[in-house]
Design a protein around this nucleic acid. Structure first.
Lengths: 218, 218
DNA sequence: TCTGAACGCGTGACCATGTCACATACAGGC
DNA sequence: GCCTGTATGTGACATGGTCACGCGTTCAGA
């Protein structure tokens, strides 16, 4: 089956679809780095399966998750480079094994010019990410660690279990591991979670939910 | 003279230009609020003269400058609403008296579909803002207040003089007024600036420059 | 001209968070 | 069982945000 059926590209005319199908998807193992800060954009990336996390890295090594790219979504960092001639600012890491399509620059630009549906896909992705970034900014600038940590736990949770080290959680919320350690300790003492090596079990989802949605005015 | 000559819209075909010229620019007095968080987008805004500052406001009242819109640029927050059906997240304030063109939604969408030059303008603006936001995020997440304050002073400076209250500076760098007060005091004791009610005079631009460009690894 | 309110600024106390330097505990290969 | 790397706990400290003030200036209106 053609990969263009997987992607949420909307309705595309036949010629666009044929063009896109000439791009062969690539397998990417978990943990591999798709691009680093300072590199030039190679093409437009669409994730078909798996998940790609894009981080911003501070000079001291601290990281923060800019956004995750889910299947059917594109990594708009790559678009920036193609449209604005700017290099990457973030670092993209395959969070799981991935299947991705890399649309070369030329094809991308002509699709943008000729195919309204494709344009819409890109634009919407753009707008959505921009909103995300604003929310993120709002969080980093105004929200307490407690709230962000609760939010991260709820996002990563599967059946009440979060499989992530404290370091991973810290990177997600743009904080330091030690801080996560202390907060989790606090959560545990309150009976909201239970922790174990590499995992957190959620015990009181309602409270965490309330925490995550708190606007900071305690 | 038609306003379309002012704006950095690039080369537009005659019909697009005529269409745009049917939009009559509006005068906006300094200090007035163009839109607030939660409002729906009315149209696509292009600034012809003056400056518009877009702030994100935290629940406790603290603010941070998302970006400034200079003449010839568009306020991409308005674009988000038009493309992604999302409401504003920020608050736009006219920093000076402004002249703006408000392109209604319908016209905007048809220009986007039909006029490659216009599309390019919007896309580039989009990409640029996105980059800005990343830089901002990087600053907020990783940079010291000292560096951000130095940067803000250099941005606002005119002939070595910054006309801004500490509250304005604080909003610019997403910090609190008291913090700015103490930092400026420090700067003064080092002989880098001199302060007076509502203004800061720069005495050692080189040092401030170095501070602003420091990556945090002191 | 006086006066009260709004504004701009300085400051001390305190809390939250980030940083650094460790110690400890566990897992998996040998 | 023993090493080595990884995950975690913790104390001490620096930075920055918050709160609660006080003090001087500006300015409109009585």
């Amino acid at each position: 089956m053609a990969w263009t059926d997987h992607a949420a590209l909307g309705d595309l005319p036949e010629r666009a679809r044929r063009l896109l199908d000439s791009v062969h998807p690539v397998d990417v193992p978990a943990g591999s780095v798709l691009f680093r800060p300072g590199e030039a954009a190679q093409g437009f990336v669409v994730v078909l399966s798996g998940r790609i996390d894009v981080f911003l890295t501070g000079p001291n090594g601290r990281e923060i998750l800019l956004y995750s790219v889910a299947p059917g979504q594109s990594c708009i960092q790559t678009t920036l480079g193609l449209l604005g001639e700017e290099d990457y600012a973030g670092e993209a890491v395959a969070a799981t094994a991935c299947h991705v399509a890399l649309i070369p620059k030329g094809m991308f630009l002509s699709l943008m010019d000729d195919v309204p549906g494709f344009r819409g896909f890109v634009f919407t992705a753009f707008a959505t990410r921009m909103q995300n970034m604003m929310h993120l900014l709002e969080m980093v600038a105004f929200q307490k660690i407690e709230c962000r940590l609760a939010g991260a736990l709820l996002e990563l949770e599967e059946d009440g279990l979060v499989m992530a080290t404290q370091a991973v959680l810290a990177a997600r919320i743009g904080s330091a591991r030690e801080v996560v350690s202390r907060r989790l300790d606090h959560f545990t003492r309150q009976g909201w979670v239970e922790t174990d090596r590499g995992q957190v079990r959620i015990r009181d989802r309602a409270t965490l939910q309330r925490l995550a949605e708190m606007d900071g005015t305690d």
